[in-house]
Write a protein that binds this DNA or RNA. Sequence first.
DNA 1: AGTGCAGTTGACTTT
DNA 2: TAAAGTCAACTGCAC
Length: 498
Amino acid sequence: MKKESLNIVWFKRDLRLTDHEPLYMACQQGGKVLLAYFWEPSLMKDAHMDSRLLQFIKESLLEMQETLAPYQLRVELLTGEVEDILTELSEQLDIRTIFSYQESGIGLTFQRDLAIKKWVKSRGVRWIEAKMDGIDRGRKNRSGWRDSMLRDLCKPIFTPDFRSIQSIILPESLHKRREIPINTQRVQGFQQGGESTANRYLNGFLKKRFPDYLTHISKPEASRRSCARISPYLAWGNLSARQVFQKSMYKLGELKSHKEKRALEGFIARLLWRGHFIQKFEMEERIEFENMNAAYDTIRLDWNEEAYMAWEEGHTGYPLVDAAIRCVTETGYLNFRLRAMLVSFLTHHLWLDWKRGAHFLARMFLDIEPGIHYPQFHMQAATTGIHTLRIYNPVKQSLEHDQEAVFIKKWVPELSALPVHLALKPWEATHLEEKLYHFRKGVDYPMPIVDISQTYQHAQKVLWEMKEKPEVKSEASRLMAKHVNSDRKNWAKVSVGK
DNA sequence: AGTGCAGTTGACTTT
DNA sequence: TAAAGTCAACTGCAC
Protein backbone atom coordinates (compact mmCIF):
# COMPACT_ATOMS: atom_id res chain seq x y z
CA MET A 1 0.00 0.00 0.00
CA LYS A 2 1.28 3.41 -0.95
CA LYS A 3 1.83 5.74 1.96
CA GLU A 4 0.26 9.17 1.92
CA SER A 5 2.93 11.83 1.55
CA LEU A 6 3.17 15.00 3.56
CA ASN A 7 5.39 17.85 4.70
CA ILE A 8 5.96 18.81 8.32
CA VAL A 9 6.22 22.26 9.85
CA TRP A 10 8.08 21.78 13.10
CA PHE A 11 7.48 24.59 15.58
CA LYS A 12 10.18 25.11 18.19
CA ARG A 13 10.84 28.52 19.72
CA ASP A 14 8.95 30.26 16.91
CA LEU A 15 5.40 30.00 18.20
CA ARG A 16 3.58 32.28 15.78
CA LEU A 17 1.71 32.16 12.49
CA THR A 18 2.73 35.55 11.07
CA ASP A 19 6.14 36.26 9.57
CA HIS A 20 6.96 32.57 9.84
CA GLU A 21 9.25 31.57 6.99
CA PRO A 22 9.06 27.76 7.38
CA LEU A 23 5.28 27.89 7.50
CA TYR A 24 5.32 30.24 4.52
CA MET A 25 7.48 27.83 2.54
CA ALA A 26 5.22 24.91 3.41
CA CYS A 27 2.19 26.89 2.25
CA GLN A 28 3.98 27.79 -0.98
CA GLN A 29 4.46 24.14 -1.64
CA GLY A 30 0.89 23.30 -0.64
CA GLY A 31 -0.66 19.87 -0.05
CA LYS A 32 -0.88 17.76 3.07
CA VAL A 33 0.96 19.12 6.06
CA LEU A 34 1.52 18.20 9.68
CA LEU A 35 1.92 21.30 11.80
CA ALA A 36 3.58 20.01 14.96
CA TYR A 37 4.98 20.96 18.31
CA PHE A 38 6.72 18.28 20.33
CA TRP A 39 6.71 18.08 24.12
CA GLU A 40 10.11 16.48 24.51
CA PRO A 41 10.54 14.66 27.85
CA SER A 42 14.31 15.21 27.73
CA LEU A 43 13.80 18.95 27.37
CA MET A 44 11.01 19.13 29.89
CA LYS A 45 13.20 17.76 32.63
CA ASP A 46 16.25 19.79 31.65
CA ALA A 47 17.77 22.24 34.13
CA HIS A 48 16.66 25.15 31.92
CA MET A 49 12.99 24.18 31.98
CA ASP A 50 10.26 25.28 34.32
CA SER A 51 6.49 24.96 34.47
CA ARG A 52 6.12 28.70 33.87
CA LEU A 53 7.84 28.26 30.52
CA LEU A 54 5.73 25.25 29.58
CA GLN A 55 2.64 27.24 30.46
CA PHE A 56 3.75 30.10 28.21
CA ILE A 57 4.45 27.68 25.38
CA LYS A 58 1.07 26.07 25.82
CA GLU A 59 -0.73 29.41 25.77
CA SER A 60 1.09 30.33 22.58
CA LEU A 61 0.14 27.05 20.92
CA LEU A 62 -3.49 27.18 21.95
CA GLU A 63 -3.83 30.59 20.36
CA MET A 64 -2.28 29.26 17.16
CA GLN A 65 -4.84 26.47 17.14
CA GLU A 66 -7.65 28.96 17.53
CA THR A 67 -6.38 31.07 14.66
CA LEU A 68 -6.01 28.03 12.43
CA ALA A 69 -9.35 26.43 13.23
CA PRO A 70 -11.35 28.41 10.60
CA TYR A 71 -8.97 27.01 7.96
CA GLN A 72 -9.64 23.44 9.15
CA LEU A 73 -5.98 23.32 10.25
CA ARG A 74 -4.51 22.38 13.60
CA VAL A 75 -1.15 22.28 15.27
CA GLU A 76 -0.68 18.81 16.68
CA LEU A 77 0.86 18.90 20.14
CA LEU A 78 2.59 15.59 20.55
CA THR A 79 4.44 14.20 23.54
CA GLY A 80 7.67 12.33 22.93
CA GLU A 81 11.20 12.66 21.66
CA VAL A 82 11.26 14.15 18.18
CA GLU A 83 13.12 11.23 16.61
CA ASP A 84 10.70 8.68 18.10
CA ILE A 85 7.68 10.55 16.82
CA LEU A 86 9.15 11.04 13.36
CA THR A 87 9.98 7.34 13.21
CA GLU A 88 6.45 6.41 14.22
CA LEU A 89 4.98 8.81 11.68
CA SER A 90 7.15 7.54 8.88
CA GLU A 91 5.85 4.01 9.47
CA GLN A 92 2.47 5.17 8.23
CA LEU A 93 3.24 8.25 6.17
CA ASP A 94 5.76 9.34 3.60
CA ILE A 95 7.50 12.40 5.04
CA ARG A 96 8.86 14.54 2.21
CA THR A 97 10.10 17.80 3.69
CA ILE A 98 10.43 19.13 7.23
CA PHE A 99 10.36 22.91 7.54
CA SER A 100 11.66 24.57 10.70
CA TYR A 101 13.74 27.44 11.97
CA GLN A 102 17.37 27.04 12.91
CA GLU A 103 17.62 27.09 16.68
CA SER A 104 20.53 28.76 18.47
CA GLY A 105 19.73 26.83 21.59
CA ILE A 106 21.24 24.89 24.46
CA GLY A 107 23.44 21.83 23.97
CA LEU A 108 20.52 19.49 24.43
CA THR A 109 18.50 20.87 21.52
CA PHE A 110 21.61 21.25 19.37
CA GLN A 111 22.46 17.57 19.91
CA ARG A 112 18.85 16.66 19.17
CA ASP A 113 19.05 18.60 15.92
CA LEU A 114 22.24 16.76 14.97
CA ALA A 115 20.48 13.46 15.62
CA ILE A 116 17.51 14.56 13.50
CA LYS A 117 19.93 15.63 10.77
CA LYS A 118 21.24 12.05 10.71
CA TRP A 119 17.73 10.66 10.80
CA VAL A 120 16.49 12.70 7.82
CA LYS A 121 19.62 11.85 5.88
CA SER A 122 19.23 8.13 6.40
CA ARG A 123 15.56 8.28 5.42
CA GLY A 124 15.91 10.54 2.42
CA VAL A 125 13.76 13.24 4.02
CA ARG A 126 14.50 16.90 3.24
CA TRP A 127 14.91 19.26 6.16
CA ILE A 128 14.85 22.95 5.37
CA GLU A 129 15.88 25.23 8.20
CA ALA A 130 15.22 28.95 7.89
CA LYS A 131 17.46 31.58 9.43
CA MET A 132 16.06 32.71 12.79
CA ASP A 133 15.91 36.47 13.45
CA GLY A 134 18.87 37.12 11.14
CA ILE A 135 21.29 34.82 13.00
CA ASP A 136 23.92 33.18 10.79
CA ARG A 137 25.00 29.57 11.24
CA GLY A 138 28.58 28.63 10.44
CA ARG A 139 29.95 32.15 10.65
CA LYS A 140 33.64 32.44 11.57
CA ASN A 141 33.78 36.13 12.50
CA ARG A 142 31.73 39.33 12.39
CA SER A 143 32.78 40.66 9.05
CA GLY A 144 29.69 41.97 7.26
CA TRP A 145 27.45 40.84 10.09
CA ARG A 146 25.66 44.15 10.67
CA ASP A 147 24.68 44.50 7.02
CA SER A 148 23.53 40.92 6.83
CA MET A 149 21.40 41.35 9.97
CA LEU A 150 19.85 44.59 8.74
CA ARG A 151 19.13 43.07 5.35
CA ASP A 152 17.27 40.24 7.05
CA LEU A 153 15.32 42.59 9.31
CA CYS A 154 14.25 44.65 6.31
CA LYS A 155 12.89 41.73 4.29
CA PRO A 156 9.14 41.78 3.65
CA ILE A 157 7.06 40.00 6.30
CA PHE A 158 6.34 36.38 5.37
CA THR A 159 2.58 35.95 5.18
CA PRO A 160 1.62 32.28 4.82
CA ASP A 161 -1.45 31.47 2.75
CA PHE A 162 -3.17 28.84 4.88
CA ARG A 163 -5.71 28.08 2.16
CA SER A 164 -3.12 26.18 0.15
CA ILE A 165 -2.49 23.45 2.74
CA GLN A 166 -4.53 20.77 4.51
CA SER A 167 -3.80 19.12 7.83
CA ILE A 168 -3.17 15.40 7.63
CA ILE A 169 -5.30 13.06 9.66
CA LEU A 170 -3.06 11.96 12.48
CA PRO A 171 -2.60 8.17 12.42
CA GLU A 172 -4.55 6.42 15.17
CA SER A 173 -1.37 5.03 16.71
CA LEU A 174 -0.19 8.54 17.55
CA HIS A 175 -3.35 9.67 19.29
CA LYS A 176 -1.99 8.61 22.64
CA ARG A 177 0.73 11.23 22.20
CA ARG A 178 -1.83 14.02 22.10
CA GLU A 179 -2.23 14.33 25.86
CA ILE A 180 -0.64 17.58 26.99
CA PRO A 181 1.73 16.61 29.78
CA ILE A 182 1.41 19.81 31.79
CA ASN A 183 -0.80 21.29 34.43
CA THR A 184 -3.70 23.24 32.98
CA GLN A 185 -3.88 25.63 35.90
CA ARG A 186 -2.56 29.07 34.93
CA VAL A 187 -0.23 30.56 37.54
CA GLN A 188 -0.96 34.23 38.05
CA GLY A 189 1.71 36.89 37.84
CA PHE A 190 3.39 35.88 34.59
CA GLN A 191 2.93 37.49 31.21
CA GLN A 192 0.58 35.48 29.04
CA GLY A 193 1.82 33.67 25.95
CA GLY A 194 0.42 34.10 22.45
CA GLU A 195 0.68 36.36 19.44
CA SER A 196 -2.24 38.61 20.32
CA THR A 197 -0.86 39.41 23.77
CA ALA A 198 2.58 39.88 22.22
CA ASN A 199 1.18 42.47 19.84
CA ARG A 200 -0.71 44.18 22.63
CA TYR A 201 2.58 44.71 24.47
CA LEU A 202 4.44 45.88 21.38
CA ASN A 203 1.67 48.20 20.19
CA GLY A 204 1.09 49.59 23.66
CA PHE A 205 4.79 50.36 23.95
CA LEU A 206 5.02 52.07 20.59
CA LYS A 207 1.83 54.01 21.10
CA LYS A 208 2.16 55.13 24.69
CA ARG A 209 4.91 53.78 26.90
CA PHE A 210 8.12 54.27 24.94
CA PRO A 211 8.97 57.95 25.72
CA ASP A 212 10.23 57.06 29.22
CA TYR A 213 12.15 54.01 28.02
CA LEU A 214 15.63 55.42 28.60
CA THR A 215 14.89 57.25 31.84
CA HIS A 216 13.11 54.31 33.48
CA ILE A 217 15.12 51.42 32.11
CA SER A 218 17.25 51.06 35.25
CA LYS A 219 14.47 51.65 37.79
CA PRO A 220 13.23 48.44 39.42
CA GLU A 221 9.57 49.48 39.37
CA ALA A 222 9.23 51.98 36.51
CA SER A 223 11.10 49.75 34.05
CA ARG A 224 8.33 47.21 34.33
CA ARG A 225 6.00 49.68 32.65
CA SER A 226 8.29 51.79 30.47
CA CYS A 227 10.16 48.92 28.88
CA ALA A 228 8.40 47.19 26.00
CA ARG A 229 8.10 43.89 27.90
CA ILE A 230 8.25 41.95 24.64
CA SER A 231 11.20 39.80 25.76
CA PRO A 232 9.22 36.57 26.37
CA TYR A 233 7.46 37.03 23.04
CA LEU A 234 10.78 37.33 21.22
CA ALA A 235 12.24 34.43 23.17
CA TRP A 236 9.40 32.04 22.31
CA GLY A 237 8.89 33.49 18.86
CA ASN A 238 5.43 34.97 19.36
CA LEU A 239 7.09 37.93 17.65
CA SER A 240 9.90 37.92 15.12
CA ALA A 241 12.72 40.41 15.46
CA ARG A 242 11.74 41.57 11.99
CA GLN A 243 8.19 42.48 13.06
CA VAL A 244 9.51 44.43 16.04
CA PHE A 245 12.19 46.14 13.96
CA GLN A 246 9.86 47.20 11.17
CA LYS A 247 7.11 48.51 13.43
CA SER A 248 9.64 50.42 15.52
CA MET A 249 11.41 51.95 12.53
CA TYR A 250 8.09 53.04 11.09
CA LYS A 251 7.19 54.71 14.37
CA LEU A 252 10.63 56.30 14.61
CA GLY A 253 10.08 57.89 11.24
CA GLU A 254 6.94 59.58 12.53
CA LEU A 255 8.53 61.11 15.62
CA LYS A 256 9.41 64.77 15.96
CA SER A 257 10.48 65.19 19.57
CA HIS A 258 14.18 64.69 20.25
CA LYS A 259 13.57 62.85 23.51
CA GLU A 260 11.14 60.43 21.93
CA LYS A 261 13.50 59.74 19.04
CA ARG A 262 16.33 59.03 21.44
CA ALA A 263 14.12 56.68 23.42
CA LEU A 264 13.02 54.65 20.43
CA GLU A 265 16.51 54.59 18.93
CA GLY A 266 17.70 53.21 22.26
CA PHE A 267 15.07 50.51 22.08
CA ILE A 268 15.99 49.55 18.50
CA ALA A 269 19.68 49.51 19.40
CA ARG A 270 18.92 46.97 22.10
CA LEU A 271 16.98 44.85 19.63
CA LEU A 272 20.14 44.76 17.51
CA TRP A 273 22.32 44.01 20.56
CA ARG A 274 20.02 41.06 21.20
CA GLY A 275 20.99 39.74 17.79
CA HIS A 276 24.63 40.41 18.54
CA PHE A 277 24.56 38.21 21.64
CA ILE A 278 22.56 35.39 20.09
CA GLN A 279 25.08 35.37 17.24
CA LYS A 280 27.90 35.19 19.78
CA PHE A 281 26.28 32.19 21.48
CA GLU A 282 25.61 30.55 18.11
CA MET A 283 29.36 30.75 17.45
CA GLU A 284 30.46 29.84 20.99
CA GLU A 285 27.80 27.50 22.29
CA ARG A 286 30.30 25.73 24.56
CA ILE A 287 29.88 28.62 27.03
CA GLU A 288 26.78 26.87 28.34
CA PHE A 289 29.24 24.51 30.00
CA GLU A 290 32.61 26.26 30.20
CA ASN A 291 34.13 29.58 31.08
CA MET A 292 34.27 31.73 27.97
CA ASN A 293 37.97 32.22 28.66
CA ALA A 294 39.43 28.92 29.89
CA ALA A 295 42.11 30.73 31.89
CA TYR A 296 39.39 31.43 34.47
CA ASP A 297 39.04 27.72 35.26
CA THR A 298 41.42 28.24 38.17
CA ILE A 299 39.16 30.49 40.23
CA ARG A 300 35.94 30.04 42.24
CA LEU A 301 36.64 26.37 42.92
CA ASP A 302 34.98 26.19 46.35
CA TRP A 303 31.25 25.68 46.69
CA ASN A 304 29.20 27.03 49.58
CA GLU A 305 25.73 25.53 49.52
CA GLU A 306 24.44 27.69 52.34
CA ALA A 307 25.50 30.93 50.66
CA TYR A 308 24.10 29.75 47.35
CA MET A 309 20.73 28.91 48.84
CA ALA A 310 20.59 32.27 50.61
CA TRP A 311 20.97 33.87 47.17
CA GLU A 312 18.42 31.64 45.49
CA GLU A 313 15.85 32.05 48.24
CA GLY A 314 16.42 35.74 48.84
CA HIS A 315 17.90 35.69 52.34
CA THR A 316 21.25 37.37 51.79
CA GLY A 317 20.52 40.27 54.11
CA TYR A 318 20.93 42.75 51.24
CA PRO A 319 17.43 44.09 50.59
CA LEU A 320 17.75 44.84 46.87
CA VAL A 321 19.32 41.45 46.14
CA ASP A 322 16.61 39.66 48.09
CA ALA A 323 13.83 41.74 46.56
CA ALA A 324 15.14 41.07 43.05
CA ILE A 325 15.43 37.32 43.38
CA ARG A 326 12.05 36.99 45.06
CA CYS A 327 10.49 39.21 42.39
CA VAL A 328 11.88 37.20 39.48
CA THR A 329 10.77 34.00 41.17
CA GLU A 330 7.22 35.34 41.36
CA THR A 331 6.97 37.24 38.07
CA GLY A 332 9.64 35.91 35.69
CA TYR A 333 10.87 39.42 34.91
CA LEU A 334 13.53 41.88 36.07
CA ASN A 335 15.13 44.81 34.30
CA PHE A 336 18.65 44.45 32.98
CA ARG A 337 20.39 46.14 35.88
CA LEU A 338 18.81 43.92 38.52
CA ARG A 339 19.67 40.80 36.56
CA ALA A 340 23.26 41.97 36.33
CA MET A 341 23.29 42.75 40.03
CA LEU A 342 22.09 39.25 40.92
CA VAL A 343 24.82 37.64 38.84
CA SER A 344 27.35 40.06 40.29
CA PHE A 345 26.33 39.20 43.83
CA LEU A 346 26.50 35.47 43.16
CA THR A 347 29.83 35.43 41.38
CA HIS A 348 31.73 38.37 42.92
CA HIS A 349 30.39 38.84 46.43
CA LEU A 350 29.62 35.18 47.14
CA TRP A 351 32.50 34.11 44.89
CA LEU A 352 30.60 31.10 43.55
CA ASP A 353 30.82 29.42 40.15
CA TRP A 354 28.15 30.71 37.76
CA LYS A 355 26.67 27.47 36.38
CA ARG A 356 24.08 26.59 38.98
CA GLY A 357 22.90 30.17 39.19
CA ALA A 358 22.66 30.28 35.40
CA HIS A 359 20.38 27.24 35.42
CA PHE A 360 18.27 28.68 38.22
CA LEU A 361 17.76 32.04 36.52
CA ALA A 362 17.09 30.31 33.20
CA ARG A 363 14.15 28.63 34.90
CA MET A 364 12.98 31.86 36.49
CA PHE A 365 13.24 34.13 33.45
CA LEU A 366 10.01 33.80 31.47
CA ASP A 367 11.97 35.33 28.59
CA ILE A 368 14.92 32.92 28.83
CA GLU A 369 16.93 33.23 25.64
CA PRO A 370 20.07 31.08 25.84
CA GLY A 371 21.79 33.30 23.31
CA ILE A 372 21.51 36.28 25.62
CA HIS A 373 21.64 34.45 28.93
CA TYR A 374 25.01 32.78 28.56
CA PRO A 375 27.03 35.61 26.99
CA GLN A 376 25.60 37.97 29.61
CA PHE A 377 26.37 35.58 32.45
CA HIS A 378 29.99 35.35 31.36
CA MET A 379 30.32 39.07 30.89
CA GLN A 380 28.90 39.73 34.33
CA ALA A 381 30.83 36.94 36.04
CA ALA A 382 33.96 38.35 34.38
CA THR A 383 35.06 35.04 32.86
CA THR A 384 35.82 36.51 29.44
CA GLY A 385 38.97 38.54 30.09
CA ILE A 386 37.59 41.10 27.67
CA HIS A 387 35.10 43.37 29.37
CA THR A 388 35.72 45.71 32.24
CA LEU A 389 34.68 44.47 35.68
CA ARG A 390 31.22 45.37 36.87
CA ILE A 391 31.01 44.58 40.53
CA TYR A 392 27.71 46.00 41.70
CA ASN A 393 27.21 47.44 45.16
CA PRO A 394 23.62 46.47 45.99
CA VAL A 395 23.34 49.19 48.61
CA LYS A 396 24.49 51.89 46.22
CA GLN A 397 22.14 50.50 43.59
CA SER A 398 19.21 50.72 45.97
CA LEU A 399 20.11 54.29 46.97
CA GLU A 400 20.30 55.34 43.34
CA HIS A 401 17.41 53.42 41.83
CA ASP A 402 15.03 52.59 44.66
CA GLN A 403 15.47 55.63 46.92
CA GLU A 404 12.08 55.26 48.55
CA ALA A 405 12.48 51.48 48.93
CA VAL A 406 9.22 50.92 47.07
CA PHE A 407 10.52 47.88 45.20
CA ILE A 408 12.28 46.54 48.29
CA LYS A 409 9.22 46.86 50.51
CA LYS A 410 7.03 45.26 47.88
CA TRP A 411 9.14 42.11 47.62
CA VAL A 412 10.64 41.92 51.09
CA PRO A 413 7.60 42.34 53.33
CA GLU A 414 9.74 41.84 56.45
CA LEU A 415 11.00 45.36 55.79
CA SER A 416 7.75 47.00 54.71
CA ALA A 417 6.92 48.58 58.07
CA LEU A 418 10.37 50.12 58.48
CA PRO A 419 11.25 53.73 57.61
CA VAL A 420 13.04 54.07 54.29
CA HIS A 421 16.56 54.42 55.69
CA LEU A 422 16.18 51.11 57.53
CA ALA A 423 14.50 49.30 54.65
CA LEU A 424 17.61 50.19 52.63
CA LYS A 425 20.05 49.27 55.42
CA PRO A 426 18.29 47.17 58.04
CA TRP A 427 21.56 46.24 59.74
CA GLU A 428 21.90 49.86 60.84
CA ALA A 429 18.83 49.74 63.07
CA THR A 430 19.73 50.93 66.56
CA HIS A 431 18.51 49.18 69.65
CA LEU A 432 15.93 51.91 70.06
CA GLU A 433 14.73 51.59 66.46
CA GLU A 434 14.41 47.84 66.85
CA LYS A 435 12.08 48.40 69.81
CA LEU A 436 10.23 51.22 68.08
CA TYR A 437 9.46 49.27 64.91
CA HIS A 438 9.17 45.81 66.48
CA PHE A 439 11.99 44.68 64.27
CA ARG A 440 14.68 42.24 65.38
CA LYS A 441 17.87 42.40 63.31
CA GLY A 442 19.00 38.96 62.23
CA VAL A 443 15.70 37.42 63.35
CA ASP A 444 12.94 39.07 61.34
CA TYR A 445 15.39 39.68 58.50
CA PRO A 446 18.92 38.27 58.20
CA MET A 447 22.07 40.24 58.83
CA PRO A 448 24.17 40.49 55.63
CA ILE A 449 25.73 37.08 54.89
CA VAL A 450 28.90 38.72 53.57
CA ASP A 451 30.59 42.07 54.08
CA ILE A 452 30.45 43.56 50.59
CA SER A 453 33.35 45.93 51.16
CA GLN A 454 35.57 42.91 51.83
CA THR A 455 34.15 40.76 49.05
CA TYR A 456 34.42 43.71 46.67
CA GLN A 457 38.10 44.11 47.43
CA HIS A 458 38.78 40.40 47.08
CA ALA A 459 36.97 40.07 43.74
CA GLN A 460 38.55 43.27 42.49
CA LYS A 461 42.04 42.12 43.37
CA VAL A 462 41.77 38.59 42.00
CA LEU A 463 39.99 39.57 38.80
CA TRP A 464 42.27 42.48 37.90
CA GLU A 465 45.28 40.29 38.44
CA MET A 466 43.68 37.65 36.21
CA LYS A 467 43.19 40.17 33.44
CA GLU A 468 46.93 40.82 33.37
CA LYS A 469 47.88 37.18 32.91
CA PRO A 470 49.26 36.31 29.48
CA GLU A 471 47.05 33.20 29.17
CA VAL A 472 43.96 35.36 29.86
CA LYS A 473 45.10 38.01 27.40
CA SER A 474 45.90 35.70 24.53
CA GLU A 475 42.54 33.94 24.75
CA ALA A 476 40.82 37.32 25.09
CA SER A 477 42.33 38.59 21.87
CA ARG A 478 41.32 35.42 20.06
CA LEU A 479 37.73 35.90 21.29
CA MET A 480 37.71 39.55 20.32
CA ALA A 481 38.90 38.86 16.81
CA LYS A 482 36.02 36.45 16.46
CA HIS A 483 33.16 38.31 18.11
CA VAL A 484 33.66 42.05 17.98
CA ASN A 485 31.66 44.06 15.47
CA SER A 486 34.50 45.92 13.87
CA ASP A 487 32.52 47.04 10.81
CA ARG A 488 31.87 50.37 12.35
CA LYS A 489 31.66 52.18 15.64
CA ASN A 490 28.23 52.57 17.16
CA TRP A 491 27.09 49.70 14.99
CA ALA A 492 23.73 49.30 16.76
CA LYS A 493 22.66 52.88 16.20
CA VAL A 494 19.98 53.43 13.58
CA SER A 495 18.53 56.69 12.41
CA VAL A 496 15.88 57.73 9.97
CA GLY A 497 15.35 60.89 7.93
CA LYS A 498 18.05 63.42 7.36
C1' DA B 1 35.06 92.76 50.09
C1' DG B 2 38.63 89.40 50.32
C1' DT B 3 40.38 85.19 52.47
C1' DG B 4 40.30 80.67 54.33
C1' DC B 5 38.09 76.49 54.70
C1' DA B 6 34.98 72.57 54.70
C1' DG B 7 32.07 70.35 51.81
C1' DT B 8 30.24 69.31 47.13
C1' DT B 9 30.33 68.37 42.20
C1' DG B 10 32.09 66.65 38.06
C1' DA B 11 35.64 64.95 34.95
C1' DC B 12 38.88 61.66 34.69
C1' DT B 13 41.72 57.58 36.18
C1' DT B 14 42.47 53.28 38.52
C1' DT B 15 41.12 48.91 40.18
C1' DT C 1 24.73 47.99 32.16
C1' DA C 2 30.54 49.46 38.01
C1' DA C 3 32.76 51.50 41.92
C1' DA C 4 36.16 53.92 44.15
C1' DG C 5 39.78 57.18 44.12
C1' DT C 6 41.88 61.63 42.70
C1' DC C 7 41.95 66.27 41.77
C1' DA C 8 40.46 70.70 40.37
C1' DA C 9 36.75 73.87 40.36
C1' DC C 10 33.11 75.56 42.71
C1' DT C 11 29.86 76.83 46.65
C1' DG C 12 28.43 78.57 51.01
C1' DC C 13 29.73 80.48 55.04
C1' DA C 14 32.36 82.71 58.86
C1' DC C 15 35.27 86.23 59.85
